[in-house]
Structure formats: C-alpha cells, structure tokens
Simulated assay, not measured.
Amino acid sequence: MTEGTKGKAQSRRRGKPIEVWVTDEEKATITECAEEAGMSRSGYLRALGLNTPIRSVVDFGAVSDLVKVNGDLGRVAGLLKLWLADKHGEGASAIDVESVMMEFRRLQVAIGMKMGAIFKSHR
C-alpha cells in the first residue's frame, strides 16, 4: 500500500490519464469533496465524468454522539419516572413530569429514525 491510500487496497492502473487544469482553490474543493465521499480525487472525478452516483461517507463520530445523547435522554426520563414515583405530588405536577417524559421519548424516537436513515442511505 502506498502512503496516500490511507489503508485502502492497492489501486490498479486504469490506463491513460486525463489532464484537467484547475486553480489551487478548485483542487482544494475537489480534494475535499473526494474525501467526503471516501474516494481518491481520481476516482471521484472518474465517477463524476461517467455520471456514477457519489455517496458521502457517514460521519460515524457524529452518529456515535447521537447514540450517546439518545442514551442520556433515556436515563433522564428514567430518573424523572423514579422521582415521580418517590415524590408524588411534590414539586412539579405529575402531569408536567409525564409531559416531559413523553417529549424525551419522542426525541429518542426521532434520533433513532435519523440514525437509521443515515445508515440505510450509506450502505
């Protein structure tokens, strides 16, 4: 493997190169777009030129953060439920607490649906 492949399998020679003249800014933009798609510049430009769909790579770190937030929402909802059971009638009304718990559950479902959609569209 060469240093520029970032752990990918060795690429094969495709034949004749095509020169494309670009400015430094255009090259930087093409490089950034290729990296977002998880492709080499050459592969990215080849895909564009052959009208092949290009998918971006999922930011698995961001999805991992969503998983953590989803878990935190569940824990807070659980704590509210315990508080409601132990301190029935003290502080906030049971209806207000139940309303907050329902909103947490709604947010958990929404986060789960977003995560599922991200993974489904990037397989």
Rank of each mutant, 00 (worst) to 15 (best):
M115G: 03
V76F: 11
G112L: 04
S11P: 15
N51S: 12
A94M: 07
G15R: 03
W21N: 09
C33E: 15
S42W: 00
G4N: 08
A34P: 08
G74S: 04
S93V: 06
V109F: 13
V63I: 14
R106M: 01
E98Q: 15
K68S: 08
A37M: 01
T23M: 02
A62E: 13
L82V: 14
E98W: 04
D65F: 02
E32N: 09
K81S: 10
G7F: 12
A110G: 08
V20E: 01
R55T: 03
A34T: 00
S42V: 00
L48I: 11
V76T: 10
G43M: 01
F119G: 14
H88W: 02
K8P: 07
F60R: 12
G61P: 12
T29V: 11
D65P: 11
A77V: 05
E32M: 06
S42M: 01
M101H: 05
V76C: 09
E25F: 02
R13P: 01
K81A: 08
G116P: 04
V63R: 07
V109D: 14
S11F: 07
G89A: 04
T5V: 15
A117M: 06
E98S: 15
D86I: 03
D65V: 01
M39N: 08
L66A: 05
C33V: 02
V57S: 14
E35N: 10
E19C: 00
A28M: 09
I111C: 03
V58I: 12
V57H: 11
L48G: 14
Q10A: 12
A92D: 13
R12P: 14
G49N: 07
